[in-house]
Design a binder for these strands. Structure first.
Lengths: 319, 319
DNA sequence: TAAAAATACTCCATAGGTATTTTAT
DNA sequence: ATAAAATACCTATGGAGTATTTTTA
């Protein structure tokens, strides 16, 4: 009974297959994989033969993925993810807190959090190198699930349910407008109902912060402006000159309002907020270093929860 | 940014690695894999080099798995399971209800369920071949998780929580003893309290049915006999001649009591029972055919819930 | 007629084979 | 002395290369 049925296909072939699907062609895939096109074509063809499934329809202009191919590709990606976990596991056997991690961050967090936190991370975990990237939630989650990045800093969302998460902190929303605007004039915290009937400028579609702000607007009777901004800086520009109002995450205030062109006003407790988390794929081999990073972020978070975190050391670091 | 870091190791090497761990030596592993020992040794050594982890300590008598090796092996198994799912997915692309499935069955179910159900399965799913095997719950679950078998028929248990399950039916427990025994004399269903203070013969350790019967004994004040049986047939022998009493699953009664040497007595409703399920690995590529098999089993179950299922066709099948 | 993939072929890196030695019990 | 794995060395499969042809939008 002890017969071992061997797997005919190789991980290399699976990578080629996924690359062709990802890049939409054998030529591009071959280039990305660093091999000649005929070599890659031959390997993919052989894989299709051994699996007994035609994954691609070859056309003169590009390729099409067959229905059967889609499900095979999904499985092939799973194999490659598992193989990546194996590699990661092996590589971390010496010191789990050494090596390189790729972490993605959403655009409404990245420029505000990283400048402060990256040096702190390096101090706390000197052997760990973090390669940061910036993208929107949906793209980051895809990249996590395909093991293209190791983790991401995102706001909690239905889509992170499939991932393992570690809370970094609560990021309150605040009202922001040109100084003198009636909504930001009172010093006392605003009630959410203050937004009733107000037109609010929002980010463009795809940003989770837009959805969260939109939800708040829906709950309070505010309505979205016709114009959308591509980033928080643009949003600040729009309300800073004109007569509009917007919502900002507290995290961004210190940087975006560094010239003091805005007046900001907090909400009454419990203030509307987003929960920022470090998220990674369930079963990742990198849990240990990621949890360590999460702990540092958690610890550093109080700096951002209040006004200005930019208390720089005045002692020179020149060596 | 589109650099593709290639996986150096091959599925073949991972199979060799796992085989060595499983069989406890390079020689046996090589034999099981159908290659020469030096070939396998070389591949394993190269894998260890590329992973940078020593998985095995080589000793003159057999091998030891290192601590680092254990975690690497777990990941390697995951890769192979994913690869198996890929193969399965591909193979089933034509007709998901065709091909071969390996299904394990626990010993207290196998000989009673299969003779009746296997022909029914063949009729309902003529293109599907099922290779049956018999083992205890713990072993079956291990085999499922390592993709050595595709599914198993077991009784529900904390250990099946990690698996996907489909209920086949409820299998009531009944009292069985030699005719004339005071516990089985009354025709009316027994109350569980009838067991109070009684000595009950049980299966040997490792059988889930032993644990379930033991739990019932604990709840009712019965106590286990000093002697354990290796199978239900032995159990029947023990109580059939002597003056003891035992518990049987209703499923087994028709076969085990075919010569009428026992008197059996049901319990009052709600009778103690076990739930039989078809269980398979979450994410298995074989969900479709397995669910089809589960449906047939479900449908056939009422035959076993009552007395004698052995109503054989009298029309000759000679051709 | 161009862009993309397949075909034809050549080459060599390496998985796998056999024979043998080393090692530890 | 023996069983198990490593070493030495040879073979041959097949993955990768270049040059070219086929296909179709």
């Amino acid at each position: 009974m002890s017969r071992w049925d061997p797997h005919q296909s190789s991980l290399r072939q699976l990578q080629y297959l996924v690359a062709v699907a990802e890049l939409g062609g054998f030529r591009r895939a071959a280039q990305a994989c660093g091999v000649a096109q005929p070599s890659l074509s031959a390997q993919v063809a052989q894989l299709e033969r051994t699996l007994g499934v035609q994954v691609f329809e070859r056309h003169a202009r590009g390729i099409r993925i067959t229905a059967a191919g889609e499900v095979v590709l999904a499985r092939a990606r799973q194999v490659l993810v598992a193989a990546t976990d194996l590699d990661d596991t092996a590589r971390r056997q010496g010191d789990p807190l050494a090596g390189t991690l790729r972490i993605g961050v959403i655009p409404t967090v990245c420029p505000y959090l990283l400048p402060e936190v990256a040096p702190a991370l390096h101090t706390a975990l000197p052997n760990l190198t973090v390669v940061w990237s910036e993208d929107k939630t949906q793209a980051l989650i895809r990249q996590i699930e395909e093991a293209r990045i190791d983790a991401a800093i995102v706001a909690v969302d239905a889509r992170v349910n499939s991932l393992e998460t570690m809370t970094i902190g609560e990021d309150a929303f605040v009202l922001a407008a040109a100084p003198g605007h009636r909504l930001v004039k009172p010093a006392a915290p605003a009630s959410p109902s203050a937004l009733d009937g107000v037109t609010v400028f929002l980010l463009e579609d795809g940003h989770c912060f837009r959805d969260q702000a939109l939800a708040l607007c829906g709950a309070t009777g505010a309505h979205a402006a016709g114009l959308s901004a591509t980033g928080l800086s643009t949003l600040v520009q729009m309300v800073g000159t004109g007569s509009g109002v917007t919502l900002l995450p507290q995290l961004a205030v210190a940087v975006e309002n560094r010239r003091g062109q805005l007046a900001v006003r907090r909400f009454k407790r419990p203030a509307p907020s987003r929960t920022l988390v470090l998220a990674w794929r369930r079963g990742s081999a990198l849990q240990r270093p990621l949890a360590a990073i999460g702990a540092v972020l958690q610890q550093a978070w109080p700096l951002f929860d209040r006004g200005v975190p930019t208390v720089r050391s005045t002692t020179s670091n020149a060596r």
